[in-house]
Amino acid sequence: MTIDWSRERLLIYAPHPDDETLGCGGLMAKVKNAGAEIYVQFVTVGDTADLSTKGYSTADERFAEIKKVADHFRWDDWNVAFPGDEYHLKLDAIPRFELSNAFERHSPLSIAEIEPTVVLAPHRTSYNQDHQVTAEAVHTALRPSDTRKRHHPRVVAAYEEAADQWRYDAAPSPNLLVELAETDLDTKLAAMCMYGTQTHEHPHTRSEATLRSLAVLRGMQGGVALAEGFHTMRWLA
């Protein structure tokens, strides 16, 4: 089965800046070149402890990185729903009702506003609490209902990150593989380099070697050179 990406409008949920690139950077490169629209809804960003010399990266630094990556991928728009240290890495303290409503209709990039044809979000089995909460809130916002009254994207899927496997109940292998060209992967890896506060040398879940290895593995499973994997929750043909 193939998708005419030139006709699609993607809405991608990223708990933090870089999750969208880790999970579907290759897909974003592929579909944008085909003519698709791409909107990225970040959920939160704040000062972040890291392994750099100074020991942390500021929210301002991370916003500057987002702007570079947005230009790199040519996103149509992006937004941060809950910025600030009071939310960053604390999304599990926000009521599901509030998060789901933001995603469904209150954010500038809400489902009601964008009317996406494809929605991508993190997988709920991630060990990261912000990823879990985001996945569940998106799931609630996209609950089945009368399509005459609420917009329903045709495709709803979860992207994967290498770090998601750090769970005893980790998700099984993806059931949707999207073939990537070498240039798509190169675009993804270049974007990760722009997230300078978040990239690391190998061995690390966010290293270039890890990202390339996962693309090679998913490609092998589909009988092609490179691919990204997704877990589909809805596919309306």
Rank of each mutant, 00 (worst) to 15 (best):
T53A: 14
A59H: 07
T205N: 10
W75Q: 09
D184N: 06
R167I: 01
L109T: 04
R206N: 04
G229V: 04
T140G: 06
H202I: 07
A36S: 14
E115R: 15
Y159C: 02
C24S: 11
T117A: 06
Y195F: 14
I94R: 08
Y168W: 13
G55L: 09
A34E: 06
A70N: 06
G46W: 02
G23S: 00
R105F: 15
R167D: 10
E115M: 10
R154T: 09
S207M: 06
Y159P: 01
F63A: 09
M194F: 05
A137F: 01
E182A: 15
F73P: 02
V118G: 00
K90S: 12
Y195S: 07
H202R: 05
Q129M: 09
P116G: 00
T2G: 05
N101L: 08
T210Q: 10
F42Y: 15
H16N: 03
M233V: 11
G23Y: 00
A163V: 06
A93C: 13
A70T: 13
Q41R: 11
M28G: 07
D164Q: 05
E65S: 06
K188R: 07
N175V: 04
E37R: 13
P95W: 07
P95H: 03
A209G: 10
E136C: 06
W166M: 11
V45T: 10
A190T: 12
T205Y: 15
R150Y: 15
V80T: 12
H151P: 00
E160G: 00
E20I: 05
C193S: 15
L214C: 05
Q198N: 03
P122H: 07
Y13C: 11
K188W: 01
G196P: 04
Y159Q: 02
V138A: 07
E161D: 07
Y159M: 02
N175M: 05
A163D: 13
A158P: 10
S213P: 10
R62G: 01
T48Q: 14
Q198R: 02
K54T: 12
P144V: 02
D186F: 04
A49R: 15
F103H: 03
G26P: 04
P17Y: 08
E208A: 14
G229W: 03
I3S: 07
H131N: 01
I94F: 14
R143L: 03
D76R: 04
E65C: 03
A70L: 08
R74Y: 05
S6N: 09
K54P: 05
L120M: 09
P83L: 04
H231S: 13
I66Y: 07
A112G: 03
E179F: 12
R9A: 03
H106S: 13
A157N: 02
A93P: 07
W5G: 08
A209I: 10
C24L: 08
Y168T: 13
R105A: 12
V40L: 09
Q165I: 14
N128W: 04
W235V: 11
Q132L: 02
R218K: 10
V45Q: 02
T210F: 08
V178W: 05
E20P: 04
E8I: 12
E104Q: 12
A34Q: 03
L91M: 12
G229E: 09
S57Y: 04
A112F: 06
S145T: 01
R206H: 11
H200E: 15
D60P: 08
T210Y: 08
V224W: 11
L211N: 13
